[in-house]
Amino acid sequence: MSFKIGWVGCGRHATQMLLPQLAPNNVTLAAVCDVNPLAAQAAATHYGVSAVYNDYRQLLEHPGLHAIGMAVGPELHQTIAIAALQRGLPVFIEKPPGGSAKAAREIAATAHRAGVPAYVGFMKRYSTGNKIAGNILRSGDFGPILGFQGNYLTAPGYFSGAVDYSSFYLHHCVHYMDLMPWLVGAEISDLQARAFEHQPGRLLAHLNMTFANGALGTLVMGTVQSRGTPMENITVMGDHQRIEVNNVINVAWHRDPPFKAEDDAARLDNSCDTLCWSPNFTAAANEDHKGYHALLRDVFRGMKGKSSQAPTIEDGAQAMLNLERMIVAIEQQLHNPSLSH
């Protein structure tokens, strides 16, 4: 039987990154909805959908739906998710899962009462390089995780006119408030920040944190880089080894090799030398290294009652809590620069 989903939000991100993942996962897009009639109709035409709505409440009444997906704004994520869950429909919520940790917890409580799952679009867990790193870190071959270092920057494209960093926090920073604990294997127990606004809209923040397992973390985020250049790299450090992920696709696992210059028999040793991986973009393979395909494949497994590791609304609530702690630390620095001295 075909698994039918109704979708709310037909903007560029949904139509180009999320909706293309449905058909390969044997999911039928049965109905679409957007407050912009032109956007809704364009998505319907592109994906061959006849049911088009401009009000999410009408979409929820569409017969035969098995689940709801959405990519709208934070407040609507909460409203629509709760309405769908109360009807017994599993939901996929593109991040952020509401505008606050409280909102995400309310979604989680509704999902628990309804007995149906709610999943969140934290695709960074599924980006190819991060996925490889996560598998190594959990394999038992890496040993204790001692530290995390990362850079995740962007440009000030989240606002125009009056500077408001809310969207930057909610749509950009929230990713790492989920990804870091997932990679380190422990929640953030302490978080502090140094922040500098070189001019309105140009924010640079250095975060330092301690994780519940004792690992230390450093993360640089801000709106001072071009989106046209790679702006993301990660290092996870262990004892005499580390994993580096650059631009979500290049992975290096540095271990503990001996010096080779004075060894006449020197060679590359599978047991201790660095392992590297990069994708082959010349191959005729439809690979999504950003992670949307793998994420939604796991989401649909869960929606269909199968085993799934997809990020849940509980994960979303924790990430939002981490984000709020980060925002408080940054805003304190912006309004009280003397705290950094």
Rank of each mutant, 00 (worst) to 15 (best):
M1H: 13
S2M: 12
C10F: 07
Q21Y: 02
Q21A: 14
A31T: 05
D34F: 09
N36W: 07
A39F: 13
A43V: 12
H46M: 10
V52L: 08
N54H: 13
N54Y: 03
L59H: 05
L59T: 07
P63H: 13
P63F: 06
I68P: 12
G73A: 11
P74A: 15
P74D: 12
A81G: 09
A83G: 09
G88I: 12
L89E: 01
S100C: 07
A101N: 06
A101H: 06
R105I: 04
E106I: 04
H112Q: 15
G121N: 04
F122S: 05
F122D: 02
R138L: 04
G143T: 01
I145V: 15
N151G: 06
V163I: 11
Y165E: 05
V174Y: 01
W182F: 13
D190M: 10
R194F: 12
H198Y: 11
P200Y: 01
L203N: 01
A205S: 14
N208C: 06
A212K: 10
G217Y: 11
M231V: 10
G238M: 03
H240K: 15
E244H: 13
N247Q: 08
N250K: 08
H254P: 01
P258M: 09
E262S: 11
D263C: 10
D264F: 12
A266I: 09
R267I: 07
R267E: 09
S271P: 00
D273Y: 03
D273C: 06
T282M: 12
A285C: 08
E287F: 07
Y292M: 11
H293E: 10
L296W: 13
L296M: 15
L296P: 02
F300D: 04
K304Q: 15
I313M: 06
D315N: 15
A317R: 00
Q318Y: 02
M320I: 07
L321R: 11
L323Q: 02
Q333Y: 03
Q333R: 15
Q333I: 04
L334M: 07
P337W: 00
